[in-house]
Computed example of a mutant assay.
Amino acid sequence: MARAATTTDAFNAVAEPRRRQILDLLMAGERPVGELAELLGLAQPQVSKHLRVLREVDLVRVRDEGRQRLYRVHAAPLQPLHAWLSRYEQAWNDRFDAMEDVLDDLASDSRPHAPLSGGRPDDQHTTEGES
Protein backbone atom coordinates (compact mmCIF):
# COMPACT_ATOMS: atom_id res chain seq x y z
CA MET A 1 0.00 0.00 0.00
CA ALA A 2 1.38 3.40 -0.92
CA ARG A 3 2.11 5.82 1.89
CA ALA A 4 -0.09 8.90 2.01
CA ALA A 5 1.53 12.20 1.17
CA THR A 6 2.68 14.18 4.19
CA THR A 7 0.49 17.05 3.10
CA THR A 8 -2.84 15.24 3.32
CA ASP A 9 -3.57 15.90 6.98
CA ALA A 10 -2.17 16.96 10.34
CA PHE A 11 -1.52 13.34 11.39
CA ASN A 12 0.99 12.82 8.60
CA ALA A 13 2.50 16.28 8.91
CA VAL A 14 3.30 15.95 12.62
CA ALA A 15 4.65 12.43 12.21
CA GLU A 16 8.00 13.99 11.30
CA PRO A 17 9.99 14.97 14.45
CA ARG A 18 11.47 18.16 12.96
CA ARG A 19 8.00 19.47 12.12
CA ARG A 20 6.94 18.84 15.70
CA GLN A 21 10.00 20.79 16.86
CA ILE A 22 9.02 23.67 14.59
CA LEU A 23 5.50 23.69 16.03
CA ASP A 24 6.96 23.65 19.55
CA LEU A 25 9.14 26.66 18.75
CA LEU A 26 6.26 28.52 17.15
CA MET A 27 4.06 27.98 20.21
CA ALA A 28 6.14 30.70 21.89
CA GLY A 29 5.17 33.14 19.15
CA GLU A 30 5.90 34.18 15.59
CA ARG A 31 9.36 33.54 14.22
CA PRO A 32 11.09 34.06 10.88
CA VAL A 33 12.48 31.05 9.03
CA GLY A 34 16.08 32.15 9.70
CA GLU A 35 15.53 32.10 13.45
CA LEU A 36 13.89 28.68 13.24
CA ALA A 37 16.82 27.37 11.21
CA GLU A 38 19.29 28.69 13.76
CA LEU A 39 17.41 27.23 16.73
CA LEU A 40 17.07 23.85 15.03
CA GLY A 41 20.61 23.75 13.69
CA LEU A 42 19.34 23.16 10.16
CA ALA A 43 19.88 24.89 6.84
CA GLN A 44 17.19 27.39 5.92
CA PRO A 45 16.04 25.41 2.84
CA GLN A 46 15.36 22.36 5.05
CA VAL A 47 13.28 24.41 7.47
CA SER A 48 11.45 26.04 4.55
CA LYS A 49 10.46 22.60 3.23
CA HIS A 50 9.06 21.62 6.61
CA LEU A 51 7.21 24.92 6.88
CA ARG A 52 5.72 24.35 3.43
CA VAL A 53 4.28 21.01 4.58
CA LEU A 54 2.92 22.59 7.76
CA ARG A 55 1.37 25.42 5.74
CA GLU A 56 -0.26 22.99 3.30
CA VAL A 57 -2.14 21.29 6.15
CA ASP A 58 -2.88 24.71 7.69
CA LEU A 59 -0.93 24.07 10.90
CA VAL A 60 1.21 27.13 10.26
CA ARG A 61 0.20 30.53 8.99
CA VAL A 62 2.54 33.14 7.55
CA ARG A 63 2.42 36.90 7.32
CA ASP A 64 4.72 39.36 5.67
CA GLU A 65 6.28 42.08 7.75
CA GLY A 66 8.50 44.20 5.59
CA ARG A 67 11.04 41.89 3.98
CA GLN A 68 10.47 39.18 6.55
CA ARG A 69 7.94 36.36 6.60
CA LEU A 70 6.79 35.48 10.10
CA TYR A 71 5.38 32.04 10.85
CA ARG A 72 2.93 31.17 13.61
CA VAL A 73 0.98 28.11 14.74
CA HIS A 74 -2.62 27.63 13.68
CA ALA A 75 -3.77 24.91 16.07
CA ALA A 76 -7.33 24.27 14.81
CA PRO A 77 -6.26 21.46 12.42
CA LEU A 78 -4.80 19.61 15.44
CA GLN A 79 -8.33 19.05 16.83
CA PRO A 80 -8.84 15.68 15.07
CA LEU A 81 -5.45 14.55 16.38
CA HIS A 82 -6.37 15.65 19.90
CA ALA A 83 -9.75 13.89 19.71
CA TRP A 84 -8.10 10.66 18.60
CA LEU A 85 -5.39 10.83 21.28
CA SER A 86 -7.86 11.67 24.06
CA ARG A 87 -9.31 8.15 23.82
CA TYR A 88 -5.87 6.78 24.69
CA GLU A 89 -5.38 9.35 27.43
CA GLN A 90 -8.26 7.81 29.42
CA ALA A 91 -6.74 4.35 29.05
CA TRP A 92 -3.38 5.61 30.30
CA ASN A 93 -5.04 7.43 33.23
CA ASP A 94 -6.84 4.21 34.19
CA ARG A 95 -3.55 2.31 34.12
CA PHE A 96 -1.77 4.93 36.21
CA ASP A 97 -4.61 4.87 38.75
CA ALA A 98 -4.36 1.07 38.98
CA MET A 99 -0.58 1.29 39.39
CA GLU A 100 -1.00 3.89 42.14
CA ASP A 101 -3.38 1.53 43.98
CA VAL A 102 -0.83 -1.29 43.77
CA LEU A 103 1.97 0.98 45.01
CA ASP A 104 -0.21 2.18 47.90
CA ASP A 105 -0.93 -1.45 48.85
CA LEU A 106 2.77 -2.33 48.70
CA ALA A 107 3.67 0.70 50.79
CA SER A 108 1.11 -0.15 53.48
CA ASP A 109 2.33 -3.77 53.58
CA SER A 110 5.93 -2.66 54.13
CA ARG A 111 5.18 -0.26 57.01
CA PRO A 112 6.07 -1.60 60.44
CA HIS A 113 2.98 -2.68 62.34
CA ALA A 114 2.38 -1.75 65.97
CA PRO A 115 2.77 -4.72 68.32
CA LEU A 116 -0.52 -6.17 69.45
CA SER A 117 0.49 -6.49 73.15
CA GLY A 118 1.67 -2.92 73.57
CA GLY A 119 5.33 -3.58 72.87
CA ARG A 120 8.10 -5.93 73.84
CA PRO A 121 8.56 -6.59 77.53
CA ASP A 122 11.98 -4.93 77.56
CA ASP A 123 10.43 -1.73 76.11
CA GLN A 124 8.10 -1.37 79.11
CA HIS A 125 10.66 -0.88 81.84
CA THR A 126 11.27 2.59 83.14
CA THR A 127 14.54 4.04 84.26
CA GLU A 128 14.95 5.56 87.66
CA GLY A 129 13.33 8.97 87.88
CA GLU A 130 10.81 8.31 85.11
CA SER A 131 7.21 7.74 85.90
Rank of each mutant, 00 (worst) to 15 (best):
M1W: 06
M1I: 11
A10K: 08
N12H: 14
A13C: 04
A13W: 02
A13N: 03
P17L: 05
R19S: 03
R20W: 02
V33G: 07
E38P: 01
L39N: 03
G41A: 11
H50P: 03
R52V: 14
V53L: 01
E56V: 07
D58P: 00
L59R: 08
V60L: 02
V62M: 13
E65C: 07
G66I: 09
G66R: 05
R67C: 06
R67E: 14
R69F: 02
L70V: 06
V73L: 14
H74C: 10
P77W: 01
L78R: 00
P80L: 10
P80G: 10
H82E: 05
W84C: 07
W84V: 06
L85G: 09
S86P: 00
R87N: 10
R87S: 12
E89T: 13
A91L: 15
A91W: 04
W92K: 04
R95Y: 03
R95N: 09
A98K: 11
M99W: 11
E100C: 09
E100A: 15
D104C: 10
D105S: 14
D105T: 15
R111H: 04
P112A: 13
P115T: 08
P115R: 10
P115D: 11
L116S: 09
G119E: 08
P121F: 11
D123R: 05
Q124C: 05
T126E: 02
T127A: 15
G129K: 06
G129E: 08
